[in-house]
Computed example of a mutant assay.
Amino acid sequence: MPTLPLETPPAPFSTGELRSRRALMRATAAAQGAEVVLAYGANRTGSAIPWLTGWPVTREALLLLPQEGAGRLLVGFHNHVPDARRTVHDAGLGDEVDPIGDDPAQATLRELRRLGPACRVGLVGPVPAWVREAVGAWARAVVVLDEPYIRLRMVKSDEELRWLEHAAALTDLAASALLEAAGRGADEREMVAAAEHAYRPAGGTHHICYVTTTSMSAPDRCVPAQWPGERRARPGSVVLFELSAGWGPDHPAQLLRTAVVGAEPTALYRRLHGVAETVRDEVLGRLRAGVLPAELLASLAGVRAEGLTTVDDLVHGLGGGYLPPVLSGRDLTPRGLHAEPLRAGTTLVVQPNICTPDFRAGVQTGEMVVVTDTGHRSLHRFPPGLLTLPFDGSGPYGRS
C-alpha cells in the first residue's frame, strides 16, 4: 500500500484556544443557571478535563471552574501530580493543581467551600455517586451540564481540526502498515502490532484497532473484531479493519477498509462492497450544514432492497468523544442531539458496514470527514475502494 509522508505535527493547543473553550463552557453553564462547573474523569474517561486544561485524565481528576478566575484541578495518585502541574503550567491558565487525596467527595467539598457560600454547581462527566451526593447536600442546586457540553464538542475549532487532520495522516500510515503485514501472512495480533508501530514513533496515540480476517469462500465474520485473535491472512482471505490513531488525548481520526489477499474478490464480496460504496456516496452527497441526520438514513433503503443488512453504525461523530449524531440502521428515528441539524465544523465518521442477513459475510468502508456549509471534506488521503493485496509468504509472517 502507498505510504503518504507525514506533515509537520500541529503545535500544542494555544492558551487562547483553551481560554476560548473555557469561555464557551462558562457561558453554557451560566445559561443553565450554574455558578461553578465541576468536571470529573477517571481511568482515561471524561473528556471535559483534557478539553479545558490539557491534562489527559489518568487515574482520577476533578476540575472546579468558577465563572471568574483560575480553576482548581485535583489529580488522583500523588505521582501524577507533577506531570499535571507541568501540563497546566505550560497551558498558561494559572490553575492550581493538587492531589485529590483518599476521599474525593471531601476534597470536592473543601474546594467548593473555598470559592464562597453554597451555590449552584454544574456537573460534567461521569461524576461518581459519592461525589454527586456530597455536592448535592452542600449546593443550592445541582445542574447536569452533559448535554450542553456535548453540543459544544460537536463543532471543532480550527486548532482541533489541525489536530484531527494530523491524526488522519497517522491513521492512514497505520493502515498501510496493517495491510502490508496482512499481505505477508500476519495474524490479527501482528496486524495490530504493525499498525501501532507505524504511528507510535511519530508521537501518535492509540485509540482503537479492530481487525478480523476470514475466508472469502467460507466466511464467518462480518465486522472487525474488537479483540484480535490468531487468525492468519492467507490467499483467499478477506481482511476488515476499523482503525483510529490519535494526536494527543481524545483527538483520533478513523479509517475503515476491506481488503482481499492473494486473490480476486468473489462475487459475494464484490456485491457487498458495491452496495457499501453506493451507500457511502449517498451519505456523503447529502452532507452539508443544516441537513437533518434523519435524511442520511434514507441512504440505507438500497441495502434493504438488496436483501442485505448492517451491524455497525452508519454515521457517528468523533473527536472529543463518541459524539452525536450516532445513526444506526436499527433505529430510523434519531432523537435529541442525534436529530439536530448538522453544523459546519462537525466531524463525522461515515462507515457503511454491509452484511449478509446471516451475519457471516460483511464489508466495511469509510473514514472521518468534516461537515462544511456546502458539503464535506475528508480528513484522509488513503485510497478508497475494495483493496486487493498481493500475498508474500516469504517474510517473518509467512509461517504455518
Rank of each mutant, 00 (worst) to 15 (best):
L170I: 04
A139F: 15
R377T: 13
P249V: 11
P99G: 12
T333R: 13
G246N: 01
R234L: 14
L145K: 14
A181I: 10
F77R: 14
A276K: 03
G319Y: 02
R270F: 06
P201K: 01
G366T: 06
A84W: 03
V192R: 04
G290T: 11
S237N: 09
V370I: 00
R280A: 08
A294G: 13
W55I: 03
T309C: 08
D95L: 04
C222P: 10
R140I: 13
Y210E: 15
G366R: 02
E188P: 05
Y149S: 13
E35I: 13
G246C: 05
Y322N: 03
G229K: 01
T356N: 00
G329Q: 07
T347P: 05
R381F: 05
H376A: 01
F13I: 01
A289T: 11
E277I: 07
L255R: 07
T212S: 15
R113M: 08
A253L: 00
A339L: 05
H338I: 06
R189A: 05
P128Y: 12
L4E: 14
R231N: 15
T108A: 11
R304V: 15
P117G: 13
V124P: 11
L255M: 08
L112V: 05
P66A: 07
R26F: 07
T8C: 03
G262H: 07
H166T: 00
P5A: 04
I49D: 00
I150Q: 08
H80F: 11
A186T: 06
G385L: 03
V239F: 06
